[in-house]
């Protein structure tokens, strides 16, 4: 059981690392949204499920309620994250920011 928790936790942390480095490295605002919105969501799913599995190790009603709350956090994040991403993209489009393309590089 411990090994499952460790694997989930460390893969989630790897996704978080990828998200942060992507935010730093990518060239423009539209492409920075890809790692920021999605890799972080995947990282949250993995790390929170690791914690839920760890909490459920000694099973009781109280621990079961806590694990259910953690699952609810994941559900809420998965509903709200696309909406927030779309709000940011929409703000950029309405303000007239041009997407970075390969031709602009040279």
């Amino acid at each position: 059981m411990k090994i499952i928790v460790m694997i989930l936790l460390f893969s989630g942390l790897a996704f978080f690392t990828g998200g942060s480095i992507g935010i730093l490295r990518l060239p423009d605002f539209y492409s920075r949204l890809h790692p920021a919105g999605k890799l972080d969501t995947a990282g949250q799913l993995l790390t929170l499920s690791a914690i839920a599995v760890f909490v459920l190790q000694d099973f009781s009603l109280h621990n079961f309620l806590t694990a259910t709350k953690i699952v609810l956090i994941v559900i809420i994040v998965y509903i709200t994250s696309p909406t927030a991403t779309h709000a940011i993209v929409d703000a950029g489009v309405r303000a007239g920011l041009k997407p970075w393309t390969k031709e602009d590089q040279s």
Binding site: A14, S31, H34, T101
Partner: peptide, 17 residues
């Protein structure tokens, strides 16, 4: 996307459109 982000030559691989 993880592969893209950690790739050293990322700027040649991506093509935003």
């Amino acid at each position: 996307v993880m592969y893209l982000v950690f790739h050293p030559k990322m700027m040649e691989l991506i093509n935003p459109q």
